[in-house]
Each structure stands twice: as C-alpha cells, then as structure tokens.
Design a binder for these strands. Structure first.
Lengths: 307, 307
DNA sequence: GATCTCCCATTCCTTTATGAATTGAAATTG
DNA sequence: CAATTTCAATTCATAAAGGAATGGGAGATC
C-alpha cells in the first residue's frame, strides 16, 4: 500500500541512517560498504536518497572520499545515539539466545590462526556440531565493541571497557634458523655473533627491535637483510633459509627443517589472552567455545601464574 | 560483496528494528504495515528475519495479532531509544531544510476540511507552487509527535510538550434547521420548545449533551431522534430536514436551504487553534503555510482577544 | 611529469524484496 | 451454529534494490 499520508518520519528507512553513520565514520563509501557488507554503489545511492529525503546535503565529496558537511555533523550525535541503542539490542538479544547453536567468530593473530587453532577448531566442531566457527586471522586489532568477533585471542591484555579477559598462559619465543642455513653459515653462539649473520625482521613493526632493546641490545632495522610483515610468510622465509629469526617455540619445534639457536639469554614469552565482550559471557554457545578454546590452547602455553 | 566476516551487528538492518517497534506498538502486522506505508507480508517477513538473526522469539502469535514475548519486551526500551534518536534526526534535519518547497501535511476536523480549507489551500498552492499540501481530515486526535501531520487545526489548545499553538479566533456555533423542516414543524422560540421537535445529535460523542449542560439544560442522548458521528453526514442530515441541530455558523450561513433558530441564548463558540511541532517553526515551507493558513482562516472566525 | 592508486559516479544486468490476492484459522456476533 | 470479521500465512508476478564492471578525476609517488 502506498500511503502518501504516512508520516515521513515513520517511513524514512532507519537503514539509511545506518549508512549515513558508516560513511561518516569511515570517510568513504567504499569503506562503509566493506563495514556493512554492502557495495559502494549501494551506499552511494542510500546517501543520495537520505539527502533527498531530508532535503539537505550531508556530505561534501572529495576525491579521497566524503566528509561530513556542517548539516551532516549536526545529525551525527543523534545517529550515534541510534547506534548505541542498536548495540544494546544486539547485546541483550545475544544474551537471551540460550541455544547451543549458531555462529561464533574468533579472531587471532595470523600465526596462531595458521599453526595452532585449526586442530582446536576441529575439536570444537566435533564436540559442538551445532556451533559454526568463523576464524578471522588478523594481526591488526579487531574491535570487540562492534562484535566483529565474539572472541579474540590476543598477545596483550585488552583495556577496553566491558571486555572480559583471561590469561591462558604464555607462548615461548625463541631464535631459530633453517638447518640448511646453519650448515652454510655456522651456528651463532652469542648475540654478538648475530652481526655477521643474515637476519629476518619486520619492515613496519618494531616489535623485534624493541624486544632486543629490552634485552639490552641496540639494533637498527637495516640490520635485518630480509624483512617481511606477514607473519606466516616470515616463517616461510625462515624455513627456506633466508636467515635467523624469531618464532613461537611451539611452531618451530614442530618443524624438523629448523633448529633453535641458543644465544645465552632468554627471550621474554608472549602472554596469550582470551577476550570477549562481557555480555557474551551469558551466551551459551560463546561461553562454550570460550571454554573449549581455553582447554585446547593449554598444551601450547606455559602455565600462567595462577593455574 | 558477501563478506561473512562482517559483524552481524553492523550488518543487521536497522529497518528491522523499526519494523519490530511498529509491530510491538500496533499489536499487529497489518497495523504496523499501515503505519510504515508497507504491507502485511513484508512486515511478517521482516519480523521473521529479525527473530532468526537474533535467535529468539520476539512475539507470540495470536489470532487477533501479535504480542511481545518476554524476550521481545526486553528489547523494547532500546528500540524506543533508537526511535527517539531517529525523531531527533528528523526534527533537526527538517529545521535545516531552508528550501521553500516540499510537502506540508495539514490535519483538521472533517467539517473544517470539507467547508473551509479547500479555497485556502487553493490559495496556498497558487502562492507557493513549490509546496505540496496533504490534507488529512480527521476528527480523532492526531499525534504531532510522530509528525503524522506538520500542522494541525484543532478546536482546543494542545497540551503536548514541544508543540507551539496559536489561537486563530473562534468559530461561531448556532442552532439550525432546514427550511423544509421548519415549514413542516414550525419555528421553536425557546429551549423548552425543542422538546417537541426532532433533534439531530451524536451517537458516541457527548459534545452536544455537555454543551447543553453547560448552558443550563439537561438533556439525554435519547432526546435526539437522529444521530450520527460523522460531521459531514450530520450536516447533510440537517440540510435534508431530519431536524434541528448544531452547526458552525459560517458553514450554515452559506447554505440557503437552512435557517438559523434563535432560542434566546448564545451557544459558546469553538476556539480554533493552529498547532505544530516546535522544531517546525524553523522550517521555512511549514512556517510559510502556517502563516498563509492563519491569514486564510481569519475571515472565518471572530477575532481572538489579542488581535 | 608520467604512472599509480584511491576514490566516486554511471551503466547494465541480476537478485532480492515487495505487494496484491488468496487461503485459512480463530474469535465475535446475530 | 452459521455468518462475519480480523488477522496471519502463502503464492506468484513484478518492481525495486543491489552488485559487478567501467570510466573518470584528483592526489600521491617516484
């Protein structure tokens, strides 16, 4: 029924405000489309429609994206209130879903996703066939607030509010190289020896540099002749004999091609944390996966202080 | 792009919450469809989709409609917060629309809509071709809060918050009958004479009964031999000679078929008020129609105290 | 200054969602 | 107890929304 008398307020599709906010926050139609699982032309049309409905220009178009106009900025606070209310709906609804079925999204670092989680997820799937698992390998920080993931595995303790965390234990880190490399170039015995060796490092991240500094060694990025930011590729470079690098001990020890190098000092281990939104604790399927994850990860870590 | 990793919160269409709230408030899919300008099957599907997405049953289905389940009731407050935020958006947006074009919705009583407004609206259309006018004749109280109408003409002063009102003047009310009736039955000269005459009254509304009581006469509903709640049809009954009844003087005096009856006492006039949401004052097209309405109505009313 | 990279707008075609009409069930009414 | 009313569910043709691909423009990069 096309009822022209229907109030425009009642008729205006709330989804358009959702689009508005996504564009405002990401600064581009493409970015908003990715966040909403939509496409750029769709977002463009929705913004146009909203602007036409309200009779004003919400964004100024730049070659690098869209930015809020003065009028658009006025609407933003109310749109954010809508979003906050929507978040409340999603969280309380999730907490009321008592079934042990549905989808649980897990995010973890690429290395952990690649080397550690697959068998654990297989086990979860076996024990809880009703629960579908989505694994989101990512070395960037995922935002639990928006529930991009239900459970996050992290190497640090989240400081976000409303997020519950659990210290599973620590992942040992060691210095490794491929046997082929060591046969060719010999075994370093001390940190000083490293200066005459090929090292594998990161291009963007300064994790190793800072780690070495913490251990008392000053080293520049240029000291690493091979550099790669993708963790899994980093590991393949190490396996292939590109040089000496760092790795999680569990991963390295499972590979007969590589060998640990003792430089006479210990590398501080990486803490492994589980994190989830507080409201998710009340959702059975997520609580269940949380528990199975914790149990499955235990053999891979050194015990935490408490347990 | 179908990105399964997209957060379900980001993906969940806000329009579904809009549907949820409309169904919760109207108590039926059909009612919600009417309010949203949609259809019953669509609303049914949207509710099903929402329930599936959240994994819980929001409504219990009755043969007379749907009512919120316990879980649905939990979500309602947050949904109402969304609605409130949406209202803020619509109101501030309307205030920023500086164009003198668009649609303005006017609601008024059936009699005023029928007899007084058409020439005034014609004049508005002539002076402001860019402004489209929707007239919503209704004797029930429309809610300005939801902006079912932008401007309301009422016979009382609205007490709603955030609503601005203006007393245009008073509509004289008189006692009338068709000449054909008076020829047949004679002219009553006093209130007492009425007891021997045919009277036209309301079936549901007690407006006349209370009005008479205020004037010092006690009268029962059954004293009216012909009764009708539809104002315009009431007027047609009077014109046709069904009996003696009340009418706005302006309407009656324009009709040669009817004649006023002087019973020796004055009927209190009906005050005529314009009402609009406060934020609408800043919207040029609505402010313009408001002004033209006030000017157009002036000849039809006795001047208010102030002007 | 030529190339590359990010964007957005547009077009065309597909998919999806929609709504009119029908059916069916339950409750109210005469 | 039959007729009527009031809803929701279903069906199916259709219109509307969506997405992939393409083109174009403005910075950034080297």
């Amino acid at each position: 029924m096309d009822n022209p008398a229907a109030s425009p307020l009642a008729r205006l599709d709330w989804a358009l405000v959702q689009a508005f906010l996504a564009v405002a926050e990401t600064g581009s139609l493409s970015g908003a489309a990715k966040r909403l699982g939509s496409s750029q032309p769709t977002l463009g049309r929705q913004i146009s429609l909203l602007e036409a409905s309200l009779g004003l220009t919400l964004f100024t178009r730049h070659p690098r994206g869209l930015s809020l106009s003065e009028e658009g900025a006025r609407l933003r606070p109310a749109a954010e209130r809508m979003q906050a209310a929507m978040r409340d709906i999603a969280l309380t609804a999730a907490g009321r879903d008592t079934r042990l079925q549905g989808t649980v999204r897990i995010t973890a670092s690429e290395v952990v996703s690649h080397h550690i989680l697959p068998p654990i997820i297989a086990q979860i799937r076996q024990q809880e066939p009703g629960i579908q698992v989505v694994l989101l390998p990512s070395d960037s920080t995922e935002n639990l607030l928006y529930r991009e993931a239900d459970i996050a595995l992290r190497m640090y303790r989240s400081t976000q509010l409303d997020v519950i965390t659990r210290h599973i234990g620590d992942l040992r880190i060691g210095v490794y190289a491929a046997k082929s490399y060591l046969e060719r170039r010999g075994h370093p015995r001390s940190a000083e020896d490293l200066l005459t060796h090929d090292l594998i490092g990161y291009e963007r991240s300064d994790l190793i540099v800072r780690g070495m500094q913490a251990a008392g060694f000053t080293i520049a990025r240029e000291a690493f002749q091979t550099r790669c930011d993708d963790q899994n590729t980093y590991w393949q470079l190490l396996r292939a004999g590109c040089g000496i690098g760092f790795s999680q001990s569990g991963v390295a020890e499972a590979d007969p091609q590589v060998e640990q190098i003792d430089l006479g000092f210990a590398i501080p281990p990486l803490p492994l944390w589980l994190a989830a939104h507080q409201a998710m604790r009340a959702t059975p399927r997520i609580a269940r996966v949380w528990k199975l994850l914790a149990a499955g990860l235990a053999p891979h870590v050194t015990a935490p202080r408490s347990a």
